[in-house]
Structures are given as C-alpha cells and as structure tokens.
Amino acid sequence: MAMRQGRGVAAVNYPTGMNLGGDPTQALVHSTPTGNFMVSLSSVDLGQGMKQIMAQICAETIGVPTDRVIVDTADTDTGPHCMGTFASRGTHRAGNAVIAAAREARQVMLEVAAEELEVNASDLDTDGAGNIHVRGAPQRSISIFDTALSAHFKRGRSISGRGMFLIPRSYPDAETGAMKPSTCYAHACTVAEVEVDDETGEVNVLTVKNIFEIGRALNPKMVEQQLVGGSWMGISHALYETTEPYYPSREHGGRDFNEYLMPGPGDLAQTEVIVLERPAADGPYGAKGPGEMCANPQIPAIANAIFDAVGVRIDTLPITPERILRALKANGTENAGLVAH
C-alpha cells in the first residue's frame, strides 16, 4: 500500500470549426436612427460570451465604442444563417462574418458623413469614440449620431452591411487522401501531477499546468475564464464523468444528478494557465477558437501521469479506481493482499 506520484504531459492540435460540406456563418449589421449598431446573428450565446465578443468585433470594425453595439442572437428561424455554436467555431466564423458586415456598414456611414462634410469618403476616419473626422484635420468632424440622423431622415440611406463567411468544403485528394479539414488550429499543452493510491485506485490531481495558443485573445478576462473552467472540466472528463460507465452496456449508467459524478469545489487541483497569442491569418483580428480545446489536453496528461505513477495504461474514460485496480491486477503489480477478492 502506497501513495505513488507521477507526472504526465500531453499536447493537442485543435481545429477551429469544421468544413464537412462547407462551414458558413452570416451576419447582418444596421444602424438605428441614433447611430447605435445592431448585429443580427443566429449564433447562440449559451454563456460562452458570444454577444460580448461580437459587440467588440463590430465596434472595432465600425469605429464606435462597444456599448454602442447591440447583438441579437435571438432566433434561428428569422436570423441570418449560422451553422451553429459548436466545434469552437463561434468567434472565428461569426466574427469574420460580423467584420464583413460591419465593413460594408462603415463604408455607407462614411459616404453619408462625406456628403455632410463635403469631402471624399476615402479621406474620412473614425476616432473610436463616436465621431468621424477628416484624416489629418480632426476639427472637420461629424458625430456618428448626426451621421445616422442624416442617413435616416435626409439622405434616405440605410447604414447597413451584409457579412458572409464560408470555409469551403475540402475534398480528399483521390491519390493521397490528403484534405484540409480545417484552416485554423489552436494548440495546447498540459503537464499534470497526480497521486495514485495503489490500494484503492483513487487518483488525486495535485497540479495541472496548461499553456494555450489561441491566436489573439479578443477579451483576455473571458479567455482566462474559459481556460480555467475548461481545465477543471478536463480533469472531470479524465476521472469522473460518464453516463455509460460500462459502455457499450447501459448498466449502471447514471439516471440523474445524484449518479453523475463531477468534482466539487473541494477537489480542485492547483491550476496554472498561460496564454500564448499568435494571431491566426484567417481569424477575426487574429482570433482562433479556444472553446472546446481547453478541456482536452488534461485528459491524456492525467492518463500519462497515472502511468508514470503506477505503471498502468488506462485507455478508457473515465479513469476510475476500478479500472486502475483491474489494470494493476492484470499487471501483477497490485498490492496482492489488499486488492484480491
């Protein structure tokens, strides 16, 4: 009987979105009469922060403060087409669509301002605070509020734009089978340290140190939040969660929350998260998808750490005490007197 410590490392290469048959998202942007901007999407915010990020992207592209942007993700029956919020694609696909729509809207906005200021639209710039001015002559300016009023009530223009982003379908090469499953990859590496009780098979994760390469972090606090929570979820997937503990048999599957194990606040590993920013060539302002990847590398890292600690390779998740004890027994390395029945 002994507590045995081990350390494991794992790295992942994670595609942002997919292109099985093409992977499109569309967006529409229009201004209200008072120069606020409305982004219409079908991409759902389920707590991951879609609305905040899309507001930032639209604001940055048009040149207004973020609080001047309203994002409506209300209804897939009526909104512009989105393939959905999955495969870590939301920021990348919808973000690119919003940039395209916001660029078109910005162009109309500048054209209206140009008429008001009697200058060429290509000479105009925004100050990011709600005003448009002549480049090099900031005193020649008009507010976006007045520009929108002019468009709506005087010039009969719609300050609006359409955004389409489509990763086209990639077909496998007939000779080699090579194809391009994704255009954008995020990366991560985790080092996990565990303690395994070779009498009970219980695993205690002592530390998880993660480094994530996610393109540009458009909202660093929200990225951190996603990565810290995801790191915990990776531990949970590795050691606790399953609806089918004896897959493919459905026996002993959890039927409710009482029978679905997840680590609680008392089971936290010491967690470290480092973000590496390497902007993606085709990402909105360089962003990749950190969404699902954040809960992946912990799983193989913990499996490797368990191997390092007690010498057994567990290749079925979750890595339960029962699986570890069975593997130790098969290995002939279990503590004979205590495990044999």
Binding site: G47, Q225, V228, G229, G230, S231, W232, M233, F257, M262, G264, P265, G266, L268, T271
Partner: peptide, 20 residues
Amino acid sequence: DVVEAISGNICRCTGYEPII
C-alpha cells in the same frame, strides 16, 4: 470555510476557483 459552504453547489463553467 468557503469551499465547505459551496460544496453543495455545482458549477459547470468556472472550475470553482473564481467563485471561491
């Protein structure tokens, strides 16, 4: 004390640390 006080509450997203 904080960990004990919220030990009956499940969070799916945060990993608990920011809550603590």
